[in-house]
Simulated scan of single mutants.
Amino acid sequence: MTKIGIITGSTRDARVNLQVAEWIKDYAEKQGIDAEFEVVDIKDTGLNRFNETVPPLMANKEYATDENNQWSETIDSLDGFIFVTPEYNKNISSGLKDHLDYLGSEWHNKAAGIVSYGSTLGIAASLALRTTLANLKLAIVTPQGAFSLFNDFENMSTFKPQEVHNATVDTLLHDVTSWASALKTIR
């Protein structure tokens, strides 16, 4: 069975990110897509800011902590990802970037989709994330989900997406799943 991790992109206490990630998981399961989906919350990993002696850290296990090893094992066990990113100052959050930088080969040759949100749909953040993911040898699918803080959130705090997004999210989920399955053959 293909395993898809839905990676949260924020560690802030006041975040809405986890709501979006859980909605994506629930939506995928209701569509009957032939894959296992799990939310991977970067806030729960115990990793600190990336400030390591040897990047990527997992290239040299002698520097690894239990948190590093757990993060490595979690990402290594997944076949593909859907990154749920907020837009902070036209970019991804530092927490998400740090979590990406902790690893190297665990990301390679896997599929990735992007779901963004913000006052301008998170478009700038998704573009920045595409570049980072491509450098980690992830195959990024299109289209991407893009939600508005003004139209898809009640009081900018409760996620209530408009139905107009369903077709895009369907395509995203199917593409990530099929690409993730295909890329298993080269890992």
Rank of each mutant, 00 (worst) to 15 (best):
M58Y: 05
M58I: 06
M58Q: 10
M58T: 13
A59S: 14
A59T: 15
N60G: 09
N60W: 12
N60L: 10
A64N: 12
T65F: 04
D66C: 11
D66W: 13
E67N: 13
N68S: 10
N68Q: 09
N69I: 13
Q70G: 11
S72T: 12
E73N: 15
T74N: 11
T74G: 09
T74H: 10
T74S: 10
T74Q: 12
T74I: 14
I75H: 14
I75L: 13
I75G: 09
D76E: 13
S77E: 06
S77K: 04
L78G: 04
L78H: 05
D79M: 11
D79K: 10
D79S: 10
G80R: 08
G80Y: 09
G80F: 09
F81R: 15
F81G: 13
I82S: 08
I82A: 08
I82Q: 08
F83H: 00
F83I: 00
P86W: 01
N89Y: 04
N89S: 05
N89H: 05
K90R: 15
N91V: 08
I92D: 07
I92Q: 07
I92P: 06
I92W: 05
S94Q: 11
S94I: 13
S94N: 10
G95D: 01
L96W: 08
K97P: 10
D98V: 09
H99N: 07
H99R: 08
H99V: 02
D101V: 02
Y102F: 10
Y102I: 09
L103S: 03
L103A: 01
L103Y: 01
G104S: 00
S105G: 13
S105V: 15
E106M: 12
W107C: 06
K110N: 04
A111E: 07
A111L: 07
A112Q: 06
A112H: 06
A112E: 06
G113V: 03
G113W: 00
G113F: 03
I114E: 04
I114N: 05
Y117F: 02
Y117C: 02
G118M: 04
G118R: 01
T120I: 09
L121Q: 05
G122Q: 02
A124Y: 09
A125I: 01
L127S: 10
A128H: 12
A128D: 07
A128R: 10
R130M: 06
R130C: 05
R130Y: 04
T131C: 11
T131Q: 15
T132A: 11
L133Q: 04
L133P: 00
A134G: 11
N135G: 12
N135W: 14
L136P: 03
L136T: 05
K137V: 07
L138G: 04
A139E: 11
A139Y: 15
I140M: 13
T142M: 15
P143C: 03
P143A: 00
P143T: 01
P143E: 01
Q144G: 15
Q144P: 15
G145L: 03
A146D: 01
S148I: 00
S148M: 03
S148D: 01
L149F: 07
